[in-house]
């Protein structure tokens, strides 16, 4: 690693701090502006004010807001997020350790699917510009972009697990198998491989298929568009014409020369899509009862579990920022003109 690259990475990490700080501050404020509070969501409407105060005191919610905010910042920095306010008040760290892997396990195949299908269809459409296949791809990309993710998820559930029972309807693994399943990392696919539990691996992959496909497909639309437009521009550039004049085959010109030059905008979009992916994960996980961080977040927002929500979003933000940093570093490997 060159000294300048190290400097770039350090600067980028430092720039991430105010970004995450602003975000978590906003979440902190918004959660408290929202009507309802964790006390009422836990105790219900029929308790007396005195009973509520007891719980409020125990959870530390009677302290001044500024103190709570300071505590929250300290917790974020030390990565010890304290305890949740509702549902058994478990340490948030434990909840995340259990649920984050589920979301990552869902996201990775979704991103791979999105990038491969999106980039390939975009390049193919660009190569066959103004031919029927181009119009079909463009139409499909608009369609998957505009269908809400939960509608698409429900549709696939009806099609592929109810009408045509190929894939399981919901969850991460067959309940029967889950009882005896040993999961040290909470990445079920990895755990199944490590322990050599092949039936469990099959079950995990089968459960993964539909939600990952749904999530990936929903994000593919933008990708097709972006790749197509950049490829068209690239295919009209001089070096492609020059390559053609040298007898370089058309396939090679499209998929090697032009495509590699469109990777910069593609990588940028992959980075940005990670944020959309997190939002998509919330909806997908709810639809498919996937016990990930997205579903956890929805559940805890409903309960107004302040600490759980703000910590989870803080982790989301750091994750997205980290991805975006990785993308920036990857640029330099793809384009020799970029040097840090």
């Amino acid at each position: 690693m060159s000294a300048s690259l190290r400097k770039f990475i350090i600067t980028r990490i430092l720039l991430t701090i105010p970004m995450v700080l602003i975000l978590i501050t906003l979440v902190f404020i918004i959660m408290r502006i929202l009507p309802g509070d964790p006390i009422r969501s836990q105790l219900g409407p029929r308790v007396t004010e005195a009973q509520a105060d007891v719980l409020r005191e125990r959870l530390g919610l009677n302290r001044p807001l500024i103190v709570q905010y300071g505590d929250f910042l300290v917790e974020m920095i030390t990565f010890d997020f304290g305890n949740a306010l509702t549902q058994g008040e478990r340490p948030i760290k434990d909840e995340l350790a259990e649920k984050l892997p589920a979301t990552i396990e869902l996201s990775i195949p979704a991103v791979i699917f999105m990038a491969v299908l999106g980039v390939w269809s975009g390049a193919y459409a660009a190569k066959n510009r103004k031919k029927p296949v181009d119009y079909i791809f463009r139409l499909l990309s608009i369609a998957v972009y505009s269908i809400p993710i939960f509608v698409m998820g429900l549709l696939f559930q009806i099609l592929f697990s109810v009408r045509l029972p190929v894939f399981p309807l919901a969850g991460r693994m067959d309940t029967v198998m889950l009882v005896s399943f040993d999961s040290p990392t909470n990445f079920y696919v990895i755990d199944a491989i490590i322990t050599g539990n092949w039936p469990a691996l099959g079950s995990a992959l089968a459960h993964l298929a539909l939600p990952a496909f749904t999530l990936g497909l929903a994000l593919t639309g933008v990708f097709v568009r972006l790749t197509r437009v950049n490829m068209i521009e690239m295919l009209q550039s001089d070096f492609i014409t020059a390559g053609r004049a040298r007898g370089i085959p058309e396939r090679r010109l499209v998929y090697k020369h032009a495509l590699r030059n469109t990777f910069i905008p593609i990588l940028t979009l992959i980075g940005l899509q990670f944020a959309a992916l997190m939002a998509g994960a919330v909806l997908t996980e709810t639809t498919f009862s996937w016990p990930g961080i997205g579903r956890y977040l929805v559940e805890r927002i409903e309960l107004r579990d302040y600490t759980a929500v703000q910590s989870t979003i803080g982790v989301f933000a750091m994750f997205v920022a980290g991805i975006s940093l990785i993308m920036d570093i990857l640029y330099a490997f793809i384009d020799p003109r970029i040097r840090y």
Binding site: S237, D238, F239, T241, A242, R246, G247, I248, R260, P336
Partner: peptide, 24 residues
């Protein structure tokens, strides 16, 4: 035709800045 282009006839273009692939 592909064989002809390159092996028998070739072309040099006006703008040398853009006629080479920037990532090769």
């Amino acid at each position: 035709l592909r064989d002809y282009r390159g092996r028998q006839a070739s072309m040099i273009f006006q703008d040398p800045m853009t006629s080479l692939n920037p990532v090769q």
